[in-house]
Design a protein around this nucleic acid. Structure first.
Lengths: 194, 194, 194, 194
DNA sequence: GATGAATGAGACTTCATTCAT
DNA sequence: CATGAATGAAGTCTCATTCAT
């Protein structure tokens, strides 16, 4: 599976789409990057959109799996949130291209596959659950969990977007670490001076 | 200007792009929506991308103007932030299509016009300034202003994105008001229970 | 007539077509060069091709008039030929743009107006007549007058084409004078050494 | 190569361009003539102009090759010139369409590809060399070789142009043979009666 | 007559997809 | 399964021409 032909094409597609956008990524370019003939792509994918769908599906599974494991751990909700942040930021460091694709093409993807796997919904839903339980257990102050989930989701996207923007080529790990700390601080204390 | 031919085309383009995405918005569809011949579009715009650039430019000017006025007011930084939130959320209520275009096509736009007017940078820069001053005046606790600006920016985008997602057709004004309150509460107190 | 609106447009068209070719010469460009609105062109010309036809017609009349006068003069055929050469080379010096248009667009013109005024036929016919008479009067050696006319015609075109090619901007009058002499010498003595 | 797809398209383009001119020759017409889909053209040519460029390039190579061989032969300059004439006239008999394209579209071609292969320059350069040597060896009378080369070039073009004009459909081989003889006679004796 | 905004047919080109080898 | 030449629908853009002012 790891080194399979399908995987090879998926990786190539991620690279090309990250560089050129989904519409700029022609099947010719993807095939060239994968060192494969154009026709071969169609042995593994129904059409071009299907490649994108597969990229989203794999990512979705990955996150779902992570959330499922995190859910079972018995730790403070803030630590769960920290875990999510860490997971996402590790992802962007490890494969910025993949994250770029997910961030930039999700709109197109959702327009096309209205009922496809929704990474955002998955993340927001899990955040909401964490917050809900935290409030129920008295560990978080009363709030509107859905709204706070949306807000936390916004954090993550913004930080990843910003990272992709500033770290063109060279890494900037400090940025991501600082981001985690700043967010946790914000959740812990707010922004207003005591 | 308001009812001019160029404005007519801009409005039509916003509608079509919001529905179909920039690539799905063919010049034929835009012309039809504007009740104009295809050729007429090219009397006012260099090419299709130029329409998008114009949409962004108009929006950029609008926001810049708002920020400039808000900057001069002598109010608590949290109120300035509240002002920005209110402004953005009023915008999404008033013309959801426009906001959808800005949110969904900014990646494409920046890939294409690397040095075009950047609404995001503009917003982030202003937020950073507000926070920086707030910290300097002792009204906000010490923090990394750039990072917090990014985070606040994430709020706004996420809320607007969510609103566009759930309010398909019918409004949901309560959502946006609740969002403002929740964010202000978060900034004021954090999330952890006292 | 000289400064009339129609003449103004004809001159502008010559300039633009010489620079950009007939197909590159848009009606907009011609109108701009003539400092006139596009619509005005259509008050004087049926369509774009008609402008070209008019340019050829004027040129045709000019040459026909010259030939008619030259025909009546009682001079040696070689001097008549010299007169034709001089007339053509004066033309190219005086208005290279016009000559460029005649040379470059005649193919298109004849394809379009199969039975329009044919400057080439006019010139060749006259040359043929001059040679025919010259032979009849014993002033020229026996030959195939049609063929020699074609050949002389080729001289003129080639010299003008070459002149237009080498005299970009700056004049090169010596070239044209040298050409006349060389051609007359060729007709007088041939090329082979005695 | 001979029956290759690219060659097939080149031949079709020659046919269509000869009939309709380069601008009248739409890609659709060329594709239809080549019995190929439009898209196929673009698998072998960058764009429409590139087809013309290829036609000129092939022709250029053909002529260059011929000149190179002729150059080495040790014969009287007049015979070399006769060889060139014969070669060109054979070409026009064999493929009038090709010659029509070369003659009619060279202006457009040179406007577009300012530094493309120049059949005319090639021919004129070679003629100049032949004449120069002939004069040096005392076989031709003293003259301005460049000018005479231009003039000879004019012969060739004019004769070919005339042939294409009169031989619409039916051949007229006598014309071309007569032309060669007439030109050689002209070069040998001039035009004036002794 | 002059104007120039509007028109829309038609040209070029791209590229996802197919299918014979 | 792999290949990649062929396909042609569809999109962008141009520009000669018209016509209301």
């Amino acid at each position: 599976m790891k080194g399979s032909r399908k995987e090879q094409i998926r990786q190539a597609a991620i690279t090309v789409i990250a560089q050129e956008g989904f519409h700029g990524a022609t099947t010719d370019k993807i095939a060239a990057q994968a060192r494969v003939a154009v026709g071969t792509i169609y042995n593994y994918f129904k059409n071009k959109e299907d490649i994108l769908a597969h990229i989203f599906a794999v990512e979705y599974e990955k996150r779902l799996h992570f959330f499922t494991r995190l859910e079972e751990e018995d730790i403070h909700p803030l630590d769960k949130i920290k875990g999510i942040l860490t997971m996402h930021f590790a992802g962007v460091r490890e494969n910025p291209n993949l994250v770029r694709v997910i961030l930039e093409e999700k709109n197109f993807f959702h327009r096309y596959y209205e009922r496809g796997p929704d990474c955002d919904q998955c993340l927001q839903g899990f955040l909401e659950q964490v917050i809900n339980r935290g409030v129920g257990e008295g560990k978080l102050r009363p709030c509107d969990p859905e709204m706070v989930a949306v807000v936390l989701f916004g954090f993550i996207e913004a930080i990843m977007g910003r990272y992709l923007c500033i770290s063109n080529g060279g890494d900037d790990n400090d940025f991501l670490e600082a981001a985690v700390n700043e967010i946790i601080a914000l959740l812990a204390e707010g922004l207003v001076s005591a």
